[in-house]
Amino acid sequence: MSVSGLIPVLAALTLSPLLFGVINKVKALVAGRQGPPVLQLYYDLLKLSRKGAVYSATTSWLFRAGLVGGVAAVVAALLLVPLGGTPAVFAFRGDFILALYLLGVARFFLVAAAMDTGSAFEGMGASREVFFSALAELALFVVLAALAHGTQTGTLSAMLGGVTPELWRAETPSLALLLIALVLVLLAENARIPVDDPNTHLELTMIHEVMVLDHGGPDFALVLYTSALKLWLFAALVVGVLPIHDGPPAAAFAAGLAGMALVAALVGVVESAMARLRLARVPQLLLGAAALALVGFLLLAAG
């Protein structure tokens, strides 16, 4: 257990809403608008947490418990993720398995809360969520197994810390493939374009937004905060594969934070430049990510 690992967790808890601000700002700038303030999500969270709540009479205790379990699971998973060369609070062989399964817990509860409303819309979202996440998880497993093989380590902290400029020079193609796969997984798992459109709420094509239609007040604040934390977690993984955590810890950590902003900006650019894929193409995109990761693994292990 490392106490300094609390710094990345604290950064996640305080700064994660900023990621959405950066994404929206970039999108606005690309579109030639001024856009909402970067701190908009903070204001939204404050406003929502001061409100009351309206519940559907169909819902049960699971609807209320779902968000609580979800946010706790994501925070617990964040305890295992390093940032900018600072190791995570906990690191043990195979810790990424626990991290991914904790995200699975969050998913299960989110889906349960959605199905608890008895709404066909939310059922639709739930159905897609479990499908696409299963594929994304597969790709993520291959990426992390490849990183572990490439760095010959077993913990998230060590394998992300082990992606050095030297390793990038030696294994450029496979690390590039893994990075692409990781970005695709980030886009899919966080309901971003080209997999999902975070701006529309009631289209039949939606996944994540449609599952939280019936949440309001503090509950919806928890939903938004959980998705911010989840985006932070995946962005931290992407940043971890960049060769920026050499040098003194403080500088490396600052580089890590800058990397987070960069990833958010990248998401913003992707969203400005692309349209959402047809739903039928999404599994192909995710399978493609898994295939890229597998090729990356193959090049590392057999090339």
Binding site: G288, A291, L294, L298
Partner: peptide
């Protein structure tokens, strides 16, 4: 189907690497 094609392609890729060795 395309998904199955991709899976078959990956399998063929594995076989190719094995043959290469």
């Amino acid at each position: 189907g395309y998904n199955l094609s991709l899976a078959i392609g990956l399998a063929a890729l594995g076989v190719s690497f094995w043959l290469g060795r």
